[in-house]
Design a protein around this nucleic acid. Structure first.
Lengths: 332, 332
DNA sequence: TCCAGTTGGTAATACGATTTACCAAATCTT
DNA sequence: AAGATTTGGTAAATCGTATTACCAACTGGA
């Protein structure tokens, strides 16, 4: 493989010139024709700079690590897509980790962080984030952005318009005449959960309603189904359920189907987050789509700025109600 | 950050010893207590090796690039998961690219390859793979494995038991009494498609049946729905459809629903590839699950071996029929 | 006592790019 | 013509690790 020195020799200049031409050093004064000779040599020898050497010298790798809760969850892959798109724009590449993969995976990530291989970190993990990752990131002072995550880390926090989303969903149920509205929430205790609960409660309070029931469940299909069983016992009179996650909504839907209760005729269902297959479920699911793509994209943009990344941002694209078939006017 | 030299100074040895201790150089003869002093200094100073320097010196980065067709497609994320798991085992990390992200993304990948940043490459992309990526990979002789891909590249090819899967699916329909069996295929012209077609046809031929109809469609929900419309015209008498991709099956299901044809009462449906939400569709979908996780995992193992990677492998885990509700005995 | 072999290391260089400080030759100024 | 600038570059020192070649001191054997 051709190196800088090879190009220098071929063009009859020093390697300093070649480097400075490539990196467009504005302080470099060089003759028109010399520059052209350099450029020609580069294409002639098919030169491309060695990434490891660049990284070593410049102390930046162009690599961003992203830690997701679960790559197979369609809600989160949308974040990844957004981050990918922005990575390309900013000349970066993404190292993807999955917090569901266990401690060994976290150790790999920690090693990379400690070794200076990562210019930045994006963490989307409501639950488990290995201490080793956090400790390394803090020690190295790696610029970090947290997506809907509550972590003791000096980082930029990006959140979604959670309160709005919950309010939009709840209002939609209210506008359909529902009075007894229950909630299947996720991630108990986390800030984004509190924001959603607040949106739900304030929408109810605005029209003088009480909560009909509240259950916390993991953001998975099975979790939703289990939550539905509990909810049926806790709030048998609920005519509508709002779910904080589309997967738990799908679980609830399955539970309702199995219990012989029809959606939306007997119970209306609405979920936060949209997925491509929502319209092909046993009942097409009405959802409130969140700007997940934008969140991923924005995270990378924050990391690509030169300045410090501390601060807090809410993705400013509004949640969007996607009407399908799972919400119907309350009977009676 | 502490460097090798810092450790050496702290332990009162040369940095060569430290390096050789860390890397367990078997030719190093060192006193028990000296070794301990080194190890203590490492923990005391919280040393971890600089990845860029390691990469530069050793010409290996520990990074593997993986190019997927579409990260948001649940069929493919399963491959990613498998690769992740194996990456952790082998002390590697994954750089994820998406061929749906366009040429700019491919250029980033090509730059990384050309710059020697990638120790290996996994390509799962039935369709578009940028020439720049292929050219760079070939020029750099980066060890590459192709997943179900037909590419002019000196690489190891890993494929799935496609013929078996198609045969299992077809047989299942036959055993349910179907005589007119149509097929919605994907990726026309590719080898894995041919293998599946062969499985389908041989299963039919074994019991003296003809194909009832064949349409090619993209592996997406919309593609499946469009294909169904064509198929209805081409083979109105088909009582069962086998789909080469679960997403096109979902599209077909939607098309059937909209046309007022019931699944499985009027038409039976079976798909290759399983997804977690298959059982919560308007009709729970019977599928043939493929060893995708294993394919991803195996790909990484191949790249992690020291030897050359040329060759060809079929993932040896058998496809598994997952009976749900979309196949019923043929009426009549 | 002298030589061979072992023990326990070290010195020095290379990997490939970046960047600072410096400088010879050419041109301009007065 | 002498000094001041400008033009067009270069030399050399990093960045942090891996590795090869070498060697001093000690031990053992005869």
């Amino acid at each position: 493989m051709a190196t800088l020195a090879d190009i220098a020799k071929a063009a009859g200049v020093s390697s300093a010139v070649v480097s400075r031409v490539i990196n467009k050093d504005p302080t470099l004064r060089v003759g028109k024709e010399t520059r052209e000779r350099v450029l020609e040599a580069i294409t002639a020898l098919d030169y491309s700079p060695n990434i490891a050497a660049k990284s070593l010298r410049s102390a930046r790798s162009g690599l961003i690590g992203i830690l997701l809760n679960d790559i197979t969850n369609p809600v989160y892959t949308e974040i990844l897509r957004g981050a990918q798109a922005a990575a390309v724009r900013n000349g970066k590449a993404l190292l993807v980790f999955d917090s569901a993969m266990g401690e060994e995976s976290a150790q790999r990530m920690a090693t990379l962080i400690a070794g200076g291989a990562l210019d930045g970190l994006i963490i989307q993990a409501s639950g488990e984030v290995s201490d080793s990752v956090i400790a390394r990131a803090a020690a190295r002072k790696v610029p970090t952005v947290l997506l809907q995550a509550d972590l003791e880390l000096d980082a930029h926090m990006i959140s979604l318009p959670d309160e709005d989303a919950a309010r939009i969903a709840t209002r939609h149920l209210i506008e359909n005449g529902h009075r007894r509205i229950a909630c299947i929430a996720t991630a108990q205790g986390m800030r984004f959960t509190e924001r959603r609960l607040h949106g739900w409660r304030s929408a109810l309070a605005a029209v003088g309603l009480d909560e009909a029931g509240l259950i916390f469940a993991p953001s998975e299909i099975d979790g939703g189904e289990a939550a539905l069983a509990q909810l049926t016992a806790q709030a048998p009179d609920a005519t509508a359920i709002m779910c904080f996650n589309v997967l738990s909504a799908i679980g609830a839907l399955r539970g309702l189907n199995r219990a012989g209760r029809r959606v939306p005729e007997d119970v209306s269902l609405i979920a936060i987050h949209d997925v491509p297959f929502a319209d092909v479920l046993s009942t097409p699911l009405t959802t409130v789509a969140m700007p997940l793509h934008e969140m991923g994209s924005y995270a990378l943009d924050v990391l690509s700025r030169e300045q410090a990344v501390a601060g807090e941002t809410v993705v400013d694209k509004a949640p969007k109600l996607v009407r399908r078939g799972s919400v119907a006017p309350a009977s009676g």
